[in-house]
Amino acid sequence: MLGTRQPEVYGRETLSDIEHACRAHASWRGLEMDFRQSNSEGELVTWIQQAKGHYAGIIINAAAYTHTSVAILDALLAVELPTVEVHLSNIHQRDAFRHHSYVAKAARGMICGFGSHGYILAIDALSRLLGDPGVASA
């Protein structure tokens, strides 16, 4: 639905547009990536659990599950991988129920409010967490 659902909140870029930009940026950073989307909480939990031993870190936009899913939180805590949480909109400027994130307890940081560019920022953040010396330090 990305690109058509509430474009004033989530922007006009499609999921495919975001994936293309992420792949290009990750490649430029020298990173390989797997890009997935599901509307199923159980499938997301399974993917997170399968990440341990196969991936160095996780960038996740849990969408509405951010505010409701203890299962996703538990999976992220169990895999013990550096995790960056991303949201297209600034969840703190929206409805009060969106201000709480279960994912935040497992994430090293959260990027929100920068639209699709947040994913690029998340790739840079994860790269830094993984020890890439090419990522500027503050």
Rank of each mutant, 00 (worst) to 15 (best):
M1T: 13
L2I: 04
R5V: 10
R5A: 11
Q6G: 01
E13K: 06
T14M: 12
T14R: 00
E19F: 02
A21Y: 11
A24M: 12
R29D: 05
G30T: 12
L31E: 13
E32L: 14
E32W: 12
M33E: 11
M33I: 15
Q37R: 10
V45N: 07
V45D: 05
Q49Y: 03
Q49C: 14
Q50G: 00
Q50R: 09
K52Q: 04
G53W: 05
G53K: 03
H54L: 15
H54N: 11
H54K: 09
Y55G: 10
A56V: 10
I58A: 00
I59A: 02
I60L: 11
N61Y: 08
A63P: 07
Y65T: 01
Y65N: 02
V70K: 03
V70H: 08
V70Y: 13
V70N: 02
A78R: 06
A78W: 05
L81R: 01
P82M: 09
E85Q: 06
H87G: 09
S89H: 08
S89E: 06
S89P: 03
R94L: 10
F97S: 04
F97Q: 00
H99D: 05
S101D: 07
K105Q: 06
K105Y: 04
A106S: 08
A106L: 13
A106P: 11
A107C: 05
A107P: 02
R108G: 03
G109F: 13
G109A: 15
G109H: 00
I111T: 04
G113D: 05
G115I: 10
Y119K: 03
A122P: 06
A125V: 08
L126M: 15
L129T: 01
L129R: 01
D132H: 11
P133D: 05
V135A: 02
A136V: 13
S137W: 09
